[in-house]
Nucleic acid binder design. Structure first.
Lengths: 208, 208
DNA sequence: CCCGGTATCAGCCAAAAGGTGGAGAGACCA
DNA sequence: TGGTCTCTCCACCTTTTGGCTGATACCGGG
């Protein structure tokens, strides 16, 4: 069996060395490079031609993991990329899949899960952590919850704490229209108040 | 020079092994134990009597890092504990200091920073990452913004999207009292609506 | 060509939230 | 002991939100 070459992309030193140590225990897996930013990842991929890229989404500065994933796939459509990140937000999962990620692991994944994901990726298999799979499933099962572009725009402004009047001014629509959109958003999110909408929006689009 | 014994507490396998590898490069530092939950941390500290504990705040399940820190200090007031976590939230920093943490590092800290923190901790020195220090400074400079315990409690429930009535029921106080607290919170946070309060609260207490 | 989805707007009414001002009780500290 | 902080509560009033119903207009697919 060929050994699988892996490129690590993460801005946290400890995470990189942890992954390296972990993957080093496997005879058929070898870390051939590391990068701490999206830009470095592109260079390193060019240089080492890794079979699999383990990619963090949140990079301290510069190009983020999603963008790096897109560009890597653009340059080499066969490149296998596994997202390896801390939080599982609906938005990130969808964006990662769109960008062309083969798998989506959370950082608290068990070592076996990580090994399986790396081995699966070279065979074209998708592996993802259970919570991620569950969320993806939810997304597919609840198409009701997908907001229209306008609604999403409004929701995003809503999380800034704006009032209906301000939302109207900002979007050049009447307060009545704002209320209509909000009612739809509440229904889709399954909440009754703007407070709850903001809470779910911020939490699901990003963290925890 | 004596070698410094260190206990690692983090629910992420990769973070633990990364730290272990990193600290292993230093002749005067030795990892004597690992724990993935607060409960395990207490046991391990009892068993290994480490000079320094590196503690993650967010533990997947069970006792969190703050609570574990408190209890460790209670059992051994001289125990040096360094918080080592991903995000730097104002609330967490204050709570960690209250709980008795000696230092506060972010996970993207440079290796040298981590070594310095460990070495400093055994000498009673506090070391913290620059962003953390900056936030602490802000806290001290803006005492207006520090919420009372009750207000903080209310704010945290507020971010769940509860109504005033529900807040009252949950905290066993009248709706009038809820409104009073909210008015104070708004003033301290510099916002005018609950929506904005939730937005700032969630954003500042936790995530980027 | 009609239908479903989207985006826009209106009016009405009830409920919730916010602003103002005041007040009493307990804790803590100088 | 007097002052300050915190937590609790009240009344009154205005503004904001949310629920409901209904309407117009555009667009794209069947």
């Amino acid at each position: 069996m060929n050994t699988i070459s892996v490129l690590l992309v993460d801005d946290h030193t400890v995470v990189r060395s942890g992954l390296k140590a972990l993957l080093g225990t496997q005879a058929d897996i070898a870390v051939v490079g590391e990068a701490s930013t999206g830009e470095e990842a592109l260079e390193a991929a060019q240089e080492h031609a890794p079979a699999v890229v383990l990619m963090d989404l949140a990079m301290g500065a510069g190009m983020d993991g999603i963008e790096a994933t897109k560009q890597l796939r653009q340059r080499n459509p066969k490149q296998a990329i596994i997202v390896f990140t801390t939080y599982d937000s609906d938005a990130d999962i969808v964006r990662a899949v769109d960008a062309g990620a083969m798998g989506y692991l959370l950082k608290d994944a068990a070592p076996e899960e990580i090994f399986a994901a790396v081995r699966g990726a070279v065979q074209g298999k998708s592996v993802m952590s259970a919570p991620v799979a569950s969320r993806l499933f939810q997304q597919l099962r609840n198409p009701d919850e997908i907001l229209t572009p306008r609604e999403a725009e409004l929701l995003s402004l809503l999380t800034e704490g704006l009032s209906n009047r301000d939302l109207g001014k900002r979007l050049f629509i009447s307060e009545a229209t704002v209320k209509t959109h909000l009612a739809h958003i509440y229904a889709k999110l399954g909440v009754e108040t703007r407070a709850a909408a903001i809470a779910t929006a911020i939490r699901r689009e990003g963290m925890r």
